[in-house]
């Protein structure tokens, strides 16, 4: 797969538009997934993905291949999503403070279903969506996409230490949310 993509990148860099289209076909779902995880909104994710491929189209010739194409694509996606979220934050009248408590209105309290790891995954996905974008972006990039602290800082336009602090807060929040779920379940189990 990676070799195929490398071939397509090489051809697209030489101006082969069909190769570029094929490259889009091969990668757009992955790009959309990251954009959706960063923005938490399908329409915003769509906008981000379109912006990403416009940027890729314009700057593909400058892609030196030091990193994998997908890594490069992820970095552009993170950057575009950060720009969009920054713009949105400027126009938002009720910003969510970073320390605001996160409420999950739909907790999974069924101990039998809890045995299924899919439940934890769903809870985690919900919890990620409930985090302020600043925090969720860092944890998504680090813990799902394996970005380095340096890369996160560069793409989000923050310092490395800020990236580390946000990551720590985000993990703590996720941990707290899931811990609350577990406590509720235990209480429920004892009550029965």
């Amino acid at each position: 797969m990676s070799k195929e993509i490398d071939n397509l990148v090489a051809k697209a860099k030489d101006g082969d538009h069909r190769a570029f289209e094929e490259l889009v076909r091969e990668t757009y779902v992955d790009t959309y997934t990251l954009a959706f995880r960063l923005t938490g909104d399908p329409e915003d994710a769509r906008d981000v993905v379109q912006e990403v491929y416009l940027r890729v189209h314009k700057s593909l010739r400058r892609f030196r291949g030091d990193s994998q194409f997908k890594t490069w694509l992820h970095r552009i996606t993170a950057n575009c999503a950060s720009t969009l979220l920054g713009r949105r934050h400027k126009h938002r009248h009720d910003p969510m403070p970073e320390d605001a408590p996160i409420a999950d209105n739909n907790p999974q309290l069924d101990p039998a279903a809890r045995a299924d790891t899919g439940v934890l995954r769903n809870q985690l996905t919900d919890a990620l969506r409930g985090l302020p974008p600043k925090l969720s972006a860092v944890v998504v990039l680090r813990d799902i996409y394996d970005f380095s602290h340096e890369a996160i800082a560069a793409e989000l336009g923050i310092s490395e230490s800020a990236a580390k602090v946000r990551l720590h807060r985000a993990r703590k929040r996720l941990r707290e949310i899931l811990h609350t779920h577990e406590d509720s379940e235990e209480a429920e189990a004892h009550a029965v």
Binding site: R25, V29, A45, R171, L174
Partner: peptide, 20 residues
């Protein structure tokens, strides 16, 4: 939590058909 986050790597979110 970290393991679960890592497992999200393999899960994709499908966009609507018009996006491509």
């Amino acid at each position: 939590v970290h393991r679960e986050l890592q497992s999200l790597k393999t899960i994709t979110v499908l966009p609507d058909e018009r996006l491509l």
